[in-house]
Structure formats: C-alpha cells, structure tokens
Amino acid sequence: MGGHEQHSYWVILLTFFLAIILALVPLPVWMLWARPEWLALVLIYWTIALPHRVGIFTGLILGVTLDVLEGATLGQNAFSLTVVAFLTLILYQRMRVTNLWQQAAMVFLLVGINQLICQWIQNLQGVAAETSLFLLPAISSALLWPMILHALRALRRHYEVN
C-alpha cells in the first residue's frame, strides 16, 4: 500500500508541474490577456477531489513557485491561490453535487477573485492594468473547466489517487 500512496502523490505533483509549464508557455500577443489560470484550475480540482490532502498550504507553495517564475512580487500568486484554496475548501461539498455548468460558474467566480487579488497586489507595485481585460482569464478558465474536470478525473480514477 505504501508504494501505491507514493505513486499517487506523483500524479498530483505531475499535474501541478504541467499546469506551471502551461502558465509560462509563450502566447501570441492577442491571446496574452485570455491565458487561462491553469494552476488555479488544477488546484481547484484537487481541492474538490481530495480536500484532506490538497488545500491552503498547497496553494501557498504553488503560489510562491509561480511568483518566482513570473518575476512577480513574492506573495502575489501565493496570496491569491491561498484564498482560492480556502474558498474551495468551504465550497467543495456544494461543488461536488452541482452540475457541470454550475461548477463552471463557481470556477468563474473563484478565478475572478484570483485575478482581482493579483491586480490589487500589482497595484501596490504600480504595474496594474489600465483595462478590465485582466478579468478575461476568469472566462477562459470557466470555459476550460469541463475539459480539466474530465481529464483530471480520468487520471485520478486510473491511478486511484485518493
């Protein structure tokens, strides 16, 4: 059993790693603003699926990692992902029983909050966006949610991560 536990941890880590890579892949200029918040999506999924394993501290560590990679203020993504994980932990029982599009609506709100927090901290540094385009990732992330959910659920069942 011990070996199996180890194995399943790797699945979670691997998905987070892929999400980080996707968050850094260069995009054409017209798509820059709409980049989905991959890390937030994957974090939300694992928090709903395994709230006893993935949660606030996971969000904190992932956030600091993303901050270093993005060259953002240390703590920016750490703060927003912590809040996202915290809210998901409150909501996970509700999200498990609602249908796909209601879930997507909640993801829209969660990623929207994520974006607002990031924007707020960037404001402290004086590099904030002057448009509301920074909310676009909330829409693109919500649209991607069904795909993420199915892919990660298949992965979780296949490797029996629990």
């Binding site: 606030i56 904190l60 203020t73 240390l74 703590g75 750490a78 912590t82 915290f86 402290l124």
Partner: peptide, 17 residues
C-alpha cells in the same frame, strides 16, 4: 491554516515590496 498562510504571505509581500 488560513490565518497562518495569510500571515506568511503578508510577510513575503511586505519584505519584497
């Protein structure tokens, strides 16, 4: 946990900015 995390994050942000 949430409080502790927020505390850590606040320290990071202030130290950095």
């Amino acid at each position: 946990r949430a409080l502790l995390s927020i505390f850590i994050v606040a320290i990071l942000i202030i130290a950095d900015l």
